[in-house]
Write a protein that binds this DNA or RNA. Structure first.
Lengths: 139, 139
DNA sequence: TTCGGTTATTTGAATGATTCCAGTTCATGT
DNA sequence: ACATGAACTGGAATCATTCAAATAACCGAA
């Protein structure tokens, strides 16, 4: 299923910016808006900043793309969805990596006291240093 | 140990704004910067916006206060630290609640593949609806 | 293939939390 | 009390993201 078909399947109109953004995300698995913009412009030079934001929003709403918002860093977007994996974020450079949740479901993710909240999803973020920053910072 | 002593213990100078901010945080367990500012001004009307940000930063660096940054909401600050608890955030109004990590340490928090990252902390955020928003939104 | 209605995109300006800057004031140790 | 360096004030600036209005593109129907 190519990008065009993916869009149709999810009831979204097929437009240049949307295809370009999907391809950009394929190239950069955890790209922030600016990276997506640049990569999208490699294919569609005229695409505007807001178009990229709109498209990312539309894709996120449609469940095609997942938005990650690491504290202190601009939002990032990824196409890998539906498998409940988690993320490592580099404290130093903000690089993001995927981490499979091998424990499967539950564990810490079924809280003891919910404080009256109805809980829908649990989000796990690991903070550390990426390989590159490890060698640079510490040695 | 009162607020003044807490500051001294952590090697921080004792100043009006710092005490005011600590007291504000005691009153509002998950306050954002604006709430802290207002509560601090109840005690110290002249305190500036920047002083509050500086103080919150200093307290966070000193490990006296923990900063929570729920995606899409302004940062919040809390005094309860060192017990590795997690948070529930209301999707609708941004209210924050504490959730004890009864499972203790580890579970999902020891990832399988670290992708080469050196991992320091794991952060768990639950997303849902707070009691107030549940009754308002759904019915 | 042309038409029409809806939806997406463009352009440009605005927002809002947070931070930077330069100068002044204050807390602390002697 | 005094010197010193950290902390505070006020104002402007930053950055990602969003809003608003006008234009243009998509896609089903004729």
């Amino acid at each position: 299923m190519d990008d065009v078909e993916v869009l149709r399947t999810h009831g979204l109109r097929v437009t240049g910016p949307r295809v370009a953004v999907l391809e950009a995300l394929h190239e950069h698995p955890h790209a922030d808006a600016e990276t997506v913009l640049r990569a999208a412009r490699d294919r569609l030079p005229a695409v505007s900043v807001q178009a990229v934001y709109d498209v990312l929003h539309a894709l996120t709403d449609a469940g095609l793309v997942r938005r990650i918002e690491p504290a202190g860093h601009p939002a990032r977007y990824e196409r890998r969805i539906g498998d409940n994996h988690h993320h490592v974020v580099c404290r130093s450079c903000g690089a993001v990596g995927d981490i499979d949740c091998t424990v499967g479901h539950s564990p810490c993710l079924t809280p003891s006291s919910t404080e009256g909240f109805s809980i829908e999803v649990a989000e796990v973020t690991f903070w550390g240093l990426c390989p590159a920053c490890r060698s640079t910072t510490a040695g």
